[in-house]
Design a protein around this nucleic acid. Sequence first.
DNA 1: ATAGGGTTAG
Length: 771
Amino acid sequence: MPHPNPTTARAVITALCRAGQVAKAREVFDGIKSQRSPDCLNAMIAGYVLNGHDSEGLQLFRKFQTSGFDPDQFTLSRMLSISANLNASDEGKQIHTFIVKKNLAVDIAVNNSLINLYFKCKSVGDAEKVFNCMPERDVYTWTVMVSGYATSGSLEKAMDLFNKMPCRNTVSWNSMISAYQSEGYDEMALDLFYKMRERGEVPNKSTFLVVLKACASQQLLDTGKGVHCCLVKLGWIKIVDARCTLMDMYIKCGELLDVQRVFNEISEHNIVSWSILVAGYAQNGKIVEAERIFNGMPERNVISWNVMIAGYVQNGMQDRAFGLFIDMIKGDMRPNCFTLTSLLSGCSSLKYTRSGKRFHGFVMKVGLQSNTSIGNSLITMYGEQGNVGDARLIFDTMPQYDVISWTAIVAAYTSNNDVGEARHIFDQMPQKNLISWNTMMFGYLQNSKNIETNIVTGVTNLDALSFFYEMEQSELKPDQFSYNCALSAGAAIGALEQARAIHCRTVKRGFISDLGVGNALITVYGKCGALNEAEMIFHSMTNPDMVSWNALLTGYSQNGQGSEVLDFYEKMQKSGVWPNRVTFVSLLTACSYLGEVVKGQKFFYAMEKEYGISPTKEHYACMVDLLGRAGHLNDAESIIINMPIEPDAAVWGALLGACKIYGDTVIGRRAADQIFHLEPDNSSAYIALAETLAAARLWEDVAKLRAVMKEKRLLKEPGCSWMEIRNQKHMFLSDDSCHQQKDSIYATLYSLYGSMIEESYALDSDLLISV
DNA sequence: ATAGGGTTAG
């Protein structure tokens, strides 16, 4: 090739690079005499950047730098942005030093690139220094500052600057919208987008894509469809990227048909569009379809594999996920931190402790242990496996935390019954989000659920509820999950007035149509005996599910309204909602109240034979109660003896209770012996047996029993009741005779509940109040 | 400068 002049050479280099022939371009560049023409050098470097060979561009620059060549402004700013992109901050700082040393003239563009560089390597202070010293600024300067703050996590500073900007362009708006969106503030992002349109700023393709992302995570199908229309109108729909983002939005909204439709409109599929399609099917439970598409993909990259592995894990198919991981390694595809986090999250149960350890080993082998997401997954995995020790060890040795790490360790403690430590960590968290608060509140709820942990941890449902009030006072606002927890806590302690107040707030905050919130409301109203209100919520639901029906049925059965249970069950069947084991507990309880032995037996039979639900201890207890209350004590006992699963104290307790009614001391003693064997300190069994013996006037036996109880210190079990009167909470212990307002409370209660109280007094004199 | 798909906490 003849030696072209610099101008021709530059044109040739640019053309070759645009055609993707970087090596050839370099040959031309090396062949010309006037290599040092900044134009040619810039063209060559630009060519490298265009083809994704940033580091070669940097090498070329370094070569010229050492040979005493003075780059122009254009080269400098380009090299600075390459350093920023490569995360080579040292390189960038060297260039900065070079500029200062040589006292080179610096224009706005170079300063802008410097700011960008410093933000990229998190030296916010240095970026600010450059910004403050600039004699002149342009839109780019402001924009790079805004996006720098935004991506360095100072949304406030970014917004502040954004408001102060003398003029904005589409990119400035986009940076701000994108910052809010990627930090999880989708609503703010959308708000800003609407403001942008109001101000008459023209959105571009990127704007719409960010808005689509916000729609995806908020599942705003209608808005998403609107953006789809805009993309079509403006002609951007032809761009594959746009279609990919659209598909993703439809996936998150669960619109598989639209996902497939958009996919079909793409004329040339690439690895991204294929992977999204796989994700679409996998994330919507169509794992077989996903697998089929995955296997038929023309080519795959790590992400395609990750999508499939995550799909298996999300659908509970751990074995397939682990198998694919092996295939991946065999096929020379290197798993990365995304692969491992998915796999580790699949090991979050006792069943997979061994696999979990193996994956942990693999993490160490490939050196991913200091990755924050990996650490987070490990904390969760060990926590869920009941291994708080290892969870803590991981947490303590992690080099860097994010909100998820903190939340994960809190969850690890709450799910292992250490609410105290969980709260201690929660209070120390440097940043908290909605999920962190909900995790803590859910932890209180979980740990006050059963009496055993309640005694160990001392946590009550009131703690969950007061934590909820604390949350309401915080800068974060509760979401549907929070309301769900609060209402469940309220249900457990029968806090009717508080439930009503929380109910109001769910309406105000727009969560009343949430199915989970509705179900929690039915439950709490049912538990409090406010069945009209429970029914009202139920009837206002557009799509009550099995849980809604069960909540209502449980409400009626717990309040002894057997015929309502049976009526509603008939309606449930007509509506086509399938019953589950909870449904049958209500049905059997109802039959027990109504003395409908035959009906109950039919339900019990149908449960297993027609609905394929194997009876649990709870169902057996119901059957024993049903037969026992009807006086069929022998049949009740033989049910227990023939149970295919081990009976617990509650099952024998049902039998003992029936014996108390009928004064059967023979079977009663047998039942009580079984309970004493299972739970040596079960004081209510002692009391029930004592009452049975007393009814038969076996006074000597009663005295002996009392002696045993005294010896075992079972006589004064502090039974505890919560009572809510006129929106005030009161707690009573059974030996608590000095509650300050006791007399006035009794008076109020008496006027409210009258005979009900007398009845409960008569039934159990040891407990002061039980309503 | 913003910029397509994958993960982890309730």
